[in-house]
């Protein structure tokens, strides 16, 4: 024990991988949700004759 942290690349990769998965996953979810909402809104307004 000398107070210096050695190694630990597996933790670095884990932190970056989790961040990438969460951010890219949420980004894809939001974009997909937008297109679904747009299609649904267009269909809805057409359906009731607006």
């Amino acid at each position: 024990m000398n107070g210096i942290v050695s190694g630990g690349w597996e933790f670095v990769w884990a932190a970056y991988a989790v961040s990438a998965v969460v951010l890219v996953g949420y980004c894809a979810h939001v974009i997909n949700g937008f297109f679904k909402a747009r299609v649904s809104a267009e269909r809805g307004t057409k359906g009731i004759g607006l």
Binding site: G3, I4, V5, G7, G8, W9, F11, V12, A15
Partner: peptide, 9 residues
């Protein structure tokens, strides 16, 4: 210097 590569987090 002290935290090594872990600091990259």
């Amino acid at each position: 210097q002290h935290m090594g590569d872990v600091q990259r987090i």
